[in-house]
Design a protein around this nucleic acid. Structure first.
Lengths: 303, 303
DNA sequence: CATTCCTATTAGAAATACTAATCCGAAACA
DNA sequence: TGTTTCGGATTAGTATTTCTAATAGGAATG
């Protein structure tokens, strides 16, 4: 497995010199002085114990050994260059890997993704929905969209939008026996809970307290592991969901959900776009970030 | 024409690390410390602006970019290694290029070469007969056999044998009207001259003087450009040649020539085997040199 | 809970690569 | 014939790269 190779820089110097049959031109190609090439080639010959050039006064020739050596080395360096180019290209044009909070993926990003495809047909997006925050130093993602407090050390963080939290329900519920006219009417309905562990996350408890509503048992109601499920249940008229504006804006627009009463609660969580430092200017990352902000700027997703 | 490549040592370090999926093992392979690999890989990633590994705690993974990069780099390094091996092999087993003084080639080496072929069937000898001394730093020769004073700066020089100079002629001349019984009898015969420019070379003038013979006009006689032609003329009974023992030993043995009278003159010229410093131990060079000395040791070629 | 395994980091040492200046010899020039 | 030019070699000193030793740290292992 262990390879046995002469010094690589000497090989490069020799290859260039052999190709040009000139140390001076090789020096030009490699941006060094002629003396450097002379040293490298001599060193290589000494290491190999084989002379590679016949040196005439104003002319170089390759020895038999040199003639055998050069083309293969040239090929090897070409291969390396091609591999580097290919890898760089892949990095630029390969799928953009975005890690997204689960529900945000389902309720915000996916419905809008076709618009991105229209705008940037050359960029394939790979959406990786995940519950937990991804460690960019470990995982091979180009960027992420996360709800949180904006503390992502070691990453470039851009605030995409602040979110509001308010109750939503199916319009059917408004037509039923107990239309939701005031928060107090919630007692006639099932509360749909987002079963998120994080305590900072706004939940019915917070909201009811802020709205000054009493007499509603928190423990009651349906629980779901993801916001998207909660929202779906609400659309299906199973109860009332407390949710972020960003996740339901399209459902509200489409009339699948309604916002029965006003009180919106400001969340201390917001939506952030994150990417490893130094990658922000990569074309595909920039394109996606720009698109995200444009989408939000349209007013359809942000408060 | 100019290639654009990341630092080659970093590429090698990355390739090894990627192959082993371990910096430590890569370090082992390249005989450096793990820290060196870590530095090189990090440096490469910084230069490319692309991360190549995902680093887990006791495990490495390649990023997409790394996965594209490694195989091609591996191939490139394999190519280099193969080229090096191939070139070395050619150097070892390719034809042994020997530059030989013209007449020595014709009269000593060529008749004996079949014996070398028998002894070392794997070594092909390329005999380049030349009049002038070859500059090994310029010309692609493995070794040389030369008559001279043994001053070959920058080369390893081995004395193959000392030579004597004496007159020879065809046995037919001994049966003619003026058999060569003493040097004085030379006046009845044509002197065959070796038309060599070098004044140190023993010629009839020297020999006649040493032998105390007078009254023979030096200007007379036939002139030839090479000793081998002089000898051939002598074999053809065209006259008497003054020649080196080494060039005629086989002809004397075979009875094509005889040595009419004693006085041999010591030449200050001798026969030397030369080869560039540091190449003496190369198998094919050593084999040929050993064979030369064995041939001479047989007593057939040396005094 | 200690140990092991593996990578990262730091600072400094060692090795390598490079440059500037100059030499040298033949070829081109005049 | 100089004389210039061209291109490689050489030398000695400098700069850069590469490497090491020591150490930290984090998760898996026993």
């Amino acid at each position: 497995m262990g390879r046995r190779l002469p010094p690589l820089n000497a090989l490069r110097a020799f290859e260039a010199a052999a190709r040009h049959l000139s140390f001076t031109k090789a020096a030009g190609e490699l941006n060094v002085t002629q003396a450097a090439i002379s040293h490298q080639v001599k060193g290589l010959e000494d290491i190999l114990g084989i002379s590679l050039f016949r040196r005439f006064n104003r002319r170089l020739m390759l020895t038999d050994a040199g003639q055998i050596y050069q083309p293969a080395l040239g090929e090897a360096f070409d291969l390396m260059e091609a591999a580097t180019r290919r890898m760089r290209l892949e990095e630029q044009t390969g799928p953009l890997k975005v890690t997204v909070a689960n529900s945000f993926a389902a309720k915000w990003l996916l419905p809008r993704l076709p618009a991105f495809r229209d705008r940037e047909p050359d960029i394939d997006v790979m959406v990786a929905a995940a519950d937990s925050v991804v460690d960019f130093t470990r995982d091979d993602f180009d960027m992420g969209i996360r709800f949180g407090l904006g503390r992502y050390p070691g990453l470039r963080v851009d605030l995409l939008f602040d979110d509001e939290v308010f109750p939503v329900c199916s319009p059917k519920l408004m037509e039923g026996p107990h239309p939701l006219l005031t928060p107090a009417d919630l007692k006639y309905h099932t509360l749909l809970h987002d079963d998120v562990g994080a305590s900072e996350f706004p939940h019915w408890g917070n909201w009811l307290e802020k709205s000054g509503v009493r007499g509603i048992r928190l423990g009651r109601g349906q629980r779901y592991s993801h916001s998207s499920l909660v929202i779906q249940a609400a659309i299906d008229a199973q109860g009332v969901a407390l949710t972020r504006s960003s996740l339901v804006d399209l459902d509200l627009e489409a009339g699948r959900l309604v916002r029965p009463f006003g009180p919106a609660m400001r969340s201390n969580y917001a939506c952030y776009v994150v990417s490893p430092h130094g990658t922000a200017d990569k074309p595909k990352i920039k394109a996606f970030r720009d698109w995200l902000f444009d989408e939000v700027g349209k007013g359809s997703g942000a408060k």
